[in-house]
Amino acid sequence: MKDEKSLFINIVALLILSFMAFYIYKVSIDTGEGIKITDNITPKMRVADRFLKKNVLDENSTYNFSQTAEDTSANIVTSIVVDYRLFDTTLEVIVLFVTILGFGFVIPKDRRRILKPSVILYRWSPILMILMLMIGGYMFINGHLSPGGGFPAGAIISTAVLIGVLAGRKTVNHKTLKVVEAIAGISIFGIGIASFIIKGVFFQNFLTGDKIGDLFSGGLIPVFYALIAFKVAAELSNIYFEFYEEC
C-alpha cells in the first residue's frame, strides 16, 4: 500500500517535472530578448559585462573616491566575491555558521560506535595534516592572485582536522575552534566597522595604493580571505567534532 502510494507520488512528481522542463523549453524558444538555451548575447553595457571589463566606476559618480581600488585584485572572481559583494560572502559564511549551530539541534543524539584507527593512518596523519595545512594556507594567501580563496582554503584546512579526528589524535580543542570561529567572525565585521570609522562606508577596501600581482596587494582582500578561511575551517571542523563527541 505504502509502496503504491509512493510510486504514485513519484509518477506525479515526474509528470510535473517533465511539464516544467517542457515549459522551460518553451520559454527558451520564445522570440525576443529573454532566456535562451544557446545564446550569443551581444555585449551590452550590462552590469555583469562591466564587471568583466573591470569598469564599474562611473566618471560622474560621487563614489569616485578611489582610483585604484578597482584594479588592485588581479583575479576577477576574487574582486567580485571579496570586494564588490563582500557583504554577501560574509553572509554566506554566517549561513554556514547557522547550519552548524542547527546541526546539534536537529540531528538526534544517539550513540554510535567507531572503529579504532589503523596504525598506518595514525602514523601518517601528521604528514597529511601538514600537507593539508600548507595547501590550505597557500590557497587563502594567494586567493587574490590565483583561483582559490577563503572558502576552499577553509574546507581544506578543516580536512586536516578531520584526519586528526579519524586518526584519533588530539589536535585542536572544540572550545578553541569556537574561539577561532567567533574571533574570525567578529574581526570581519570589526574591519567593516573600522572602514566605517575611517571612510564612513561599510566594508570598503580602504587599504589602497599597491601594485597588482604583488603578494601584498588588493588591500583588505587577503585579510578577509584569511579570516574567512579560518572561520570556515573552524566551522567545518566543528561538524566533525559534533559527530565525534557523540561517539
Partner: peptide, 27 residues
C-alpha cells in the same frame, strides 16, 4: 542575472520590461 546582468532591485525593475513575456513569466 543571466538575462539582465544585474541584481539590483531597481535596475531589474528598469530592465525587466525589455524581456519577452515567456521569460518574464518564468522568472
Amino acid at each position: 542575472y543571466k538575462t539582465l546582468g544585474t541584481l539590483n532591485f531597481a535596475d531589474i525593475a528598469l530592465k525587466l520590461t525589455k524581456l519577452n513575456q515567456a521569460s518574464y513569466n518564468l522568472i
